[in-house]
């Protein structure tokens, strides 16, 4: 996982296979990053993601709920087609738009 700020937007780049094994290693780091005040939106970038299963959906929905309380948007970017298929099945785009 890598992150950067573009003005007041926090960009989080995920890498490799986003499954239970990966998510449990990065979840706390992501929560620390998104807890920072002054962020207007958070973007998950999937450019370098080779695989995602429902654990990745749980990561998104879990962060979405935390950010919703602070009215911070969560956006999904550079979603490859194999990841898109999982996302479309789950309806995640109805709360976290694809950009």
């Amino acid at each position: 996982m890598k992150y950067k700020y573009e003005f007041d937007q926090l960009i989080i780049e995920l890498y490799g296979d986003v499954d239970e094994h990966y998510v449990k290693k990065i979840r706390d780091d992501i929560d620390f990053l998104i807890s920072r005040q002054g962020i207007s939106s958070v973007v998950f970038d999937f450019k370098n993601v080779s695989f995602v299963d429902s654990t990745g959906l749980g990561l998104i929905f879990g962060r979405y709920k935390k950010l919703l309380a602070r009215k911070v948007e969560l956006l999904l970017r550079n979603v490859p087609s194999h990841v898109d298929r999982v996302f479309r099945t789950s309806g995640v785009y109805s709360v976290c738009p694809k950009i």
Binding site: S54, L59, T89
Partner: peptide, 17 residues
């Protein structure tokens, strides 16, 4: 049954795929 960190979509994905 997994609380906030799970989406409950596992079986739905298996059925779809």
């Amino acid at each position: 049954s997994g609380g906030d960190e799970r989406s409950g979509m596992g079986f739905t994905i298996m059925e779809t795929f």
